[in-house]
Design a protein around this nucleic acid. Structure first.
Lengths: 200, 200
DNA sequence: AAGCTAATTGACCGGTCGGCCAGTTAGTGA
DNA sequence: TCACTAACTGGCCGACCGGTCAATTAGCTT
């Protein structure tokens, strides 16, 4: 069927959002101009203003969507919970690691956002960590994990580590002796999981 | 004694560099204008161009100085080496952690630089990691650390973790259950060091 | 004291920024 | 069919961008 190029505001919005996402991810908010986004999405600059109110509004929308994608993905993983224990922790780490690996744009957007001091996603992320920490606490009380470490710290350790691994990928990717994503994760899990076991 | 405001190009350079460092750290390269730097250092825009060739030249100089400070500090710590072993690793982690804590500007500058895809500091940092990994390898061969993990990965784990802890400080600083810098480091070391011991 | 060099200034350049606005056009519902 | 609304366009605005340049001035050398 032949699609006549009629007006489709929904598609227009999507095209703008996708272009903006790609450019913001690549260069950050300050280094991207509305003109570039317009050109990339084959749309006039005025139309962006019409749909999103301006550069700032578009930026907010891009962040909102990316963070929603992040939050829903992680929440879903956390909700389909098995019984708390080492295996669950290991699975959570692996899930988180693979999500970041498969969504490099989201990772970079997070990084830009942090540097700009935007804390709008802080509560959202805090909620996820709170849920994770609760699982760790349960496992500790069941005697499956060592009880002398702060559960929030445990979650933060692997969240931060995975985050930095992908944020600084270009930086340390070529260092001598550095393994692949999978090899690094495997080594980390070896050390981390062993260190989390109850004292003998 | 009364200091007459005579010409002092060295001081001028320093004042410009300090202002530029503060602004670049705060907002990143793209979001800072030469005019802002000039105003902050009480100097004309032309003078910046005279001393540093332009915005890019100044940016390069700021990065160069910050990274030199980083490199020298870390190299010095690494060179005054004891015998490789768990205690040395623990000391290296603590040193690195405290350096980042005491140099938040450098941390943020690193972060901006990474996002911009600048890999000029990659070799420098790789050299430090290489030295650290060598120590780990020695400890492994002496049977003091478990031998079934990649030494480069071991170093990367704590480097990345410390880095992300301070880069995302504002982000996770207010989460419920999150402890202080010292408490977090302590918990991490508990898990990390235990996980690095040879298998029983 | 004369002369040279480099630090320093202020005015100016072309270009780009984000935003605005009047006008045109395409769907949509009465 | 005839408004009415919203999508969409192009041109324009003042502000700011980084950079340049000629002119001034301070300090050093001889």
């Amino acid at each position: 069927m032949i699609e006549t190029a009629t007006r489709d505001p929904e598609l227009t919005r999507t095209r703008i959002l996708e272009s903006a996402f790609a450019l913001f991810v690549d260069k950050g908010y300050a280094a991207v101009s509305v003109r570039q986004i317009a050109e990339r999405s084959d749309v006039t600059k005025s139309l962006i203003h019409h749909h999103f109110g301006g550069k700032e509004g578009l930026w907010d929308e891009v962040k909102k969507l990316a963070f929603a994608q992040y939050y829903e993905g992680q929440k879903q993983e956390l909700d389909q919970a098995e019984q708390p224990g080492p295996e669950l922790i290991m699975q959570a780490v692996t899930n988180y690691f693979e999500f970041l690996r498969d969504n490099p744009g989201v990772v970079r957007l997070f990084a830009w956002t942090h540097l700009e001091g935007d804390t709008s996603c802080s509560e959202m992320d805090g909620e996820l960590v709170r849920l994770g920490a609760e699982r760790v606490r349960q496992a500790q009380q069941a005697g499956l994990l060592r009880g002398d470490v702060n559960p929030t710290h445990v979650v933060t350790i692997f969240v931060n580590l995975c985050t930095q691994w992908f944020e600084a990928r270009d930086h340390h990717g070529a260092w001598p002796g550095m393994g692949s994503d999978e090899e690094f994760l495997e080594d980390f899990l070896k050390v981390f999981m062993e260190g989390l076991l109850p004292r003998a």
